[in-house]
């Protein structure tokens, strides 16, 4: 600890700091946007300057949108009389992702396993490698919807980030972890942030956890259980929970004009698996089961980690107030993992 130093940047200097940083490397940071109907705001990770910086709210969409954009062109066709050529370009510019929470960061790392599974998805990994990550660690839960401590995420983990920041009285303490974080420290130096000691951080308030890890096989066993039919009748089959989720990675590929685009798709919808000949999941409960089981059973069975990082977005965003924690508890009870 002793030879490490940290910087304190006060709230009033924060914008100036991000702006200076943005001049060196493009910065993606959570910003506030007015909802179109004027009934409030939502925050989202976007390039700096599009809205007002807000680091303390839960963003509507997770950082998934930075690595797997909701919609991106993966190919273009150029046609001449002789032949059709396909051209593709992977993103390559370096950027800083500022103030991401450990739940999101962990989610991205867990998705690395999938996107690197046998075939390496360069769209994902190019963005992964080009992104300098500043983790905003949580010494207490954001609100009552956080449940990262259920699914094996350490809210104050610092090791794998490039820089770490922590909310402190009147501002943030930022310190460097890896070499790639130097660019941020340089700018902090330049804008005259005060040097302070690296704080000792202890997470508080992450209580009453239900340990989900390790129950994937027990859940798999209750796939055919009747409980699914009555588990969540309120689910309407929209895509909100999957779109806001940092680990929901399913996508659709379509040709639009001379471009091949991929964009997010959602397993809770009827169209997801329907073909003209076959619909393996005709009922809503089957689609809800797919989402829950994919996260808590299939993903750990396949990749060894739970496909959920407890960010709480699906809970806060669900229009019908479905709380996935309630359902997990009921399922684990049914599977006799907990009493």
């Amino acid at each position: 600890m002793s030879n490490k130093k940290a910087y304190f940047i006060s709230d009033d200097k924060l914008n100036g700091f991000i702006e200076s940083l943005n001049e060196k490397v493009p910065v993606y940071v959570p910003q506030r946007f007015d909802r179109a109907d004027g009934t409030g705001i939502y925050t989202e990770y976007r390039p700096y300057g599009e809205g007002e910086v807000d680091l303390e709210s839960r963003t509507l969409l997770s950082v998934k949108s930075i690595f797997l954009p909701q919609c991106e062109v993966i190919l273009g066709f150029t046609t001449n009389e002789e032949r059709v050529d396909v051209v593709s370009e992977a993103p390559s510019d370096e950027r800083v992702l500022f103030s991401i929470r450990n739940c999101d960061f962990e989610a991205v790392r867990r998705l690395d396993l999938l996107f690197g599974w046998d075939y390496r998805d360069e769209f994902w990994f190019a963005r992964r490698e080009n992104t300098i990550i500043v983790v905003n660690i949580c010494d207490s839960p954001l609100d009552d919807k956080c449940f990262c401590h259920w699914v094996g995420v350490d809210p104050v983990a610092t090791e794998l980030a490039d820089c770490v920041m922590l909310r402190a009285e009147g501002g943030y303490i930022i310190w460097r972890i890896s070499e790639r974080g130097d660019v941020i420290i340089d700018v902090l130096d330049k804008v005259g942030a005060d040097e302070v000691d690296v704080p000792e951080v202890e997470a508080k308030g992450f209580d009453n956890a239900i340990e989900v890890d390790g129950s994937h096989n027990a859940l798999f066993e209750i796939f055919t259980d009747e409980i699914w039919k009555v588990l969540e009748p309120s689910c309407i089959g929209c895509g909100i929970c999957t779109f806001v989720c940092p680990t929901c990675h399913c996508f659709e590929i379509q040709d639009e004009g001379s471009k091949r685009v991929r964009f997010w798709d959602y397993c809770t919808g009827y169209e997801f698996t329907r073909t003209e000949a076959h619909q393996p999941r005709p009922r809503q409960y089957q689609r809800y089961r797919q989402r829950v089981m994919h996260k808590y059973s299939y993903y750990p069975r396949r990749f060894g980690v739970v496909g959920c990082t407890g960010c709480g977005r699906c809970i806060s965003a669900c229009p019908q107030n479905v709380d996935i924690r309630e359902d997990i508890v009921r399922l684990l009870k049914r599977a006799k993992v907990i009493k």
Binding site: D265, R301, R302
Partner: peptide
């Protein structure tokens, strides 16, 4: 056979269980 988009295990569409 199932609805597939990527064929590479990424798009999450064709799984039956894990």
């Amino acid at each position: 056979e199932a609805k597939m988009k990527c064929g590479l295990g990424k798009c999450g569409r064709c799984n039956i269980g894990d």
